[in-house]
Design a protein around this nucleic acid. Structure first.
Lengths: 291, 291
DNA sequence: CAAACTACTTGACTTTAGTCAGCTTATATA
DNA sequence: TATATAAGCTGACTAAAGTCAAGTAGTTTG
């Protein structure tokens, strides 16, 4: 009923103001914003000068001067990279680490002010933020290997379990243990765990293990509700199939349930066909694909 | 499960980039951003210089120079306000109107790019944007008088009707006509229609009409779901009661339904007490308050 | 090994945005 | 009517961010 463009503009106005307020946490410490932003990007373990330049899109000359001013403040040390002595690596001094932590805390405080205003609807606001960011990053989703015991992997599997529990009455939480007791099976050389990242948010996963020599099983395909309808499930399946083929498997199998219609449609359209049962309920459909 | 502060930071990163992209629509026309933003604020009918200054938070000197540069470009005309000859009013020349329209179109195009990425979840994205903006503007909600035939008033009443239809089976759309056939009753001197604004989004309303001499009736209290839990309902009730008292009414009445528990709780806590029926179903509870 | 290339530094420069004091002109108030 | 106050203009200034070209030191490639 109301004009979407006007809604977007209101959003921009308000968020610009809020983000401006967040930016001011970089100010107010006797240092221009540009310098503070550079300081904020320096990891305690040291950061390449080129990486900072790429992240902030700065001119070589400008960054060079910015780093010099941080150096004269005694906050950083510049070291030539032993691997390529043209490059330089920035390290934080003790004073630098303190100063960086202060900025970190200020940002933290500002963020909590935002959530304080959300009151009881905090989770709804976080979900809304994730949805908007994920939609805006739609074309920048990256699929990367992960360890099945990595916190991000646990988040994905936990979310997947929540979805299963909501769908199947026969399942109980104790049937879905976390971390995975057989985590080792999902590691190379005969297993894999892939996570789809939208910036630093895990929005999907899929895993692979050896079922018997030459035959792999695909498990735990999950796509975050905020990222559905963008073909991410198919991308994950394609990625895990490639991984399985590269590991020398000639066939992949999976079990599923006909209640999960979207998933089944996806598998069938991706060339999977039905096979005889090889697991127990709640599975009621079994599929395989030659790799 | 995931750190809310990290989620907010991701949102900031992404949205800053997008908003930056929107800002670039103000650039790329051989004119610095500041000048373009001023041009964008000038209405075709003319705008007070003071208003522009207030909206952009500019220094008198800076705006003066900015306007001068727009004047030498031939885009605006400065006229002294006949009502107060210290003040100046900015008018767009024909060239200025064209240029402003170009900026308008560029912004429009950028906005549509954002929505294009939302695909089928466009409405969800708009709702998410409204929620975030409304939460951030929580402390800036303004209650203002409106005409019952104003588009914003119609939006509120329409939303209120949707809520009623979803709650009561006995109601049908033809029982809830729009625009209101008795709109005149909700205008001064014996009626009122109040809208709660969050920036330019109407997020709540309430109306008042004369029932019989000295007795007013409060109708159509509505609060947008995105703005609930912030005490807006109470603020609207207090505002309409003040309005009723100022108009000389000594009592206010309303009818409601016990299914609407939040509303009933609100009325009772605000000093309303039960009276004998004076309307028909779906109303099943009637309340009054001495003003 | 010379030539081409890369990472970074330095100095000179520009643009944009903004501050501040002092000014003129007009309006409101005791 | 004197006086204070307000709106806006102007000139002189500063800070921040960024551009550009020339140069140095190190690396890669034909």
């Amino acid at each position: 009923m109301l004009d979407p463009i006007a809604r977007l503009r209101r959003f921009n106005r308000v968020v610009t103001r809020e983000i401006g307020a967040l930016d001011t946490s970089y100010l107010g410490r006797g240092r221009p914003l540009g310098v503070a932003r550079v300081l904020h990007l320096i990891r305690p373990s040291g950061t390449d000068v080129a990486e900072i330049r790429a992240r902030l899109g700065l001119d070589t000359g400008l960054l060079s001067r910015t780093l010099r001013s941080l150096q004269t403040e005694g906050l950083i040390q510049l070291v030539t990279d032993p691997a390529d002595r043209r490059c330089r690596i920035v390290h934080l001094t003790t004073a630098g680490q303190t100063e960086r932590q202060i900025y970190e805390n200020l940002g933290h405080a500002k963020a909590q002010q935002v959530f304080a205003r959300a009151g009881s609807r905090q989770q709804a606001v976080i979900d809304a933020m994730d949805l908007i960011a994920t939609v805006m990053l739609r074309d920048d989703v990256e699929i990367r290997d992960a360890d099945p015991d990595d916190p991000a992997a646990l988040h994905c599997v936990w979310s997947y379990y929540q979805q299963l529990l909501a769908t199947f009455d026969v399942l109980t939480p104790d049937m879905l243990p976390l971390p995975l007791p057989d985590a080792a099976k999902y590691r190379p050389p005969t297993g894999a765990f892939l996570i789809a990242w939208s910036d630093d948010l895990p929005i999907g996963c899929v895993s692979l293990r050896e079922l018997e020599p030459g035959i792999a099983e695909v498990k735990r395909l999950w796509v975050d509700p905020i990222a559905r309808g963008q073909g991410l499930g198919l991308r994950l399946m394609r990625a895990i199939e490639v991984r399985a083929r590269d590991m020398g498997f000639t066939q992949a199998r999976l079990d599923s349930n006909t209640h999960l219609t979207t998933a089944i449609t996806l598998y069938r359209s991706d060339g999977w066909s039905e096979i005889a049962p090889y697991t127990t309920p709640p599975a009621n459909i079994w599929l395989a694909k030659r790799l």
